[in-house]
Design a protein around this nucleic acid. Structure first.
Lengths: 147, 147
DNA sequence: CTGATATCGTTGTACTATACAACTCTCGGG
DNA sequence: CCCGAGAGTTGTATAGTACAACGATATCAG
């Protein structure tokens, strides 16, 4: 097999397997946590990681329309998982923070999610994992610059 | 950093990056081909690869409800991309095949999709690609057995 | 052969996530 | 002070999905 062919085969495989990843993420999303969709989980995690953020930030980061984010955020607020605090220095802006219940829910969801991945990746040794993680990061960086 | 920590960091990274992959796939899906959603593309590709398949097979393979598949298939038939042929040996079954137009559309969609991935992965050398492809396959196998 | 059970697919219904467009409120610069 | 730009909300439409009820066909036990 020529180098050209090997490259083509790998490209084809990567396409197919990444599609499978996306499909699985969708199918698994619902049963993550009874109270938390995958989008909701992602938003909570982002807010925690950023120590508070604006709805516009979420929209930009997740390639979503601001109206979509607005509704997701409203739902999370209704559930008492997040709070909005109007930015005192700019009253157009609402900074989102985790509410206490949001912290709790996020912690349990994260734990259960982690268990899932632990189970899936149990047979991988440390080098395999770090290499795979690095490759995924690299792929996402490249994908972001070649949309 | 202990081995335990390295493992944890890698696990966390893999979770986050795989979620990003799913998010990107969703956002990119629409603009793949004017006439073809990501699901539609996937179905066409599956039919081609299997040289014809049943709606039930698609549902099982993609973790979708049979009603969902039924509607997707109906839409693809309306567009003239696939044909249904009643299985002569079992009249409950409809075997799906690509119509001529379906073959053409699939070919162009596949080419444009391939270009996208070529661009993204241009800087990867052959070893990087084959290793990444193999890791993705391994991950999906493991994920399938630990849902 | 007949009736019970299972399989394949369709249709009715409802819900969720999403986008786009129009709007309000607020900010900052001439 | 006004006007353009940014943040967020709401109205509307659409796509994708699930669940449940159904009809048609097949299979198997008796």
């Amino acid at each position: 097999m020529s180098a050209r062919d090997a490259r083509d085969v790998a490209l084809e495989t990567i396409q197919r397997e990444l599609t499978a990843v996306a499909r699985r993420a969708r199918a698994t999303a619902a049963q993550m946590h009874p109270e938390l969709s995958l989008v909701a989980y992602t938003i909570l995690a982002h807010i925690e990681e950023q120590q508070g953020c604006r709805a516009t930030d979420l929209a930009a980061h997740y390639l979503l329309d601001k109206s979509t984010v607005s509704r997701q955020v409203a739902a999370l607020e209704r559930l008492g998982l997040i709070e909005r605090r109007v930015d005192p220095s700019d009253h157009r802006v609402q900074v989102l923070h985790l509410a206490r219940h949001g912290n709790e829910i996020l912690a349990t969801a994260r734990a259960s999610r982690r268990e899932t991945f632990e189970a899936r990746l149990r047979d991988w040794d440390r080098e395999d994992l770090t290499r795979f993680a690095a490759d995924l990061v690299r792929y996402n960086v490249d994908a972001a610059s070649h949309p």
